[in-house]
Amino acid sequence: MELLSLIGAITIFILAIFLGFELITKVPATLHTPLMSGANAISGITVVGALIFSNTAFNNGNPGSAAWLAFFALILATINVVGGFAVTNRMLNMIAGKRRGK
């Protein structure tokens, strides 16, 4: 990573932190758990890193421990992502679904 792109990445990092602080303000207690669960699923974005590394590590001929670590990471991250969104959806359906029916 060159200096310029590093500074770019740090800029994005810091701005995104401020964005995160501003994004969540008043949340009703009902939504605490679904919000936590949804945010958790988004943090499963690390699946992108796992994908890239699974590919490069297996590409270099004989896969060693690095490749299997990346592959394991891929599975865990996918569980996090798919499970996270599915669970959030289930919770929200229960909360919001009833309200719509009133």
Binding site: I14, G20, I24, L35
Partner: peptide, 11 residues
């Protein structure tokens, strides 16, 4: 990642 990190802290 950092957005979830910050929002999680607020939550």
């Amino acid at each position: 990642g950092s957005m979830v990190g910050a929002a999680g802290l607020i939550l």
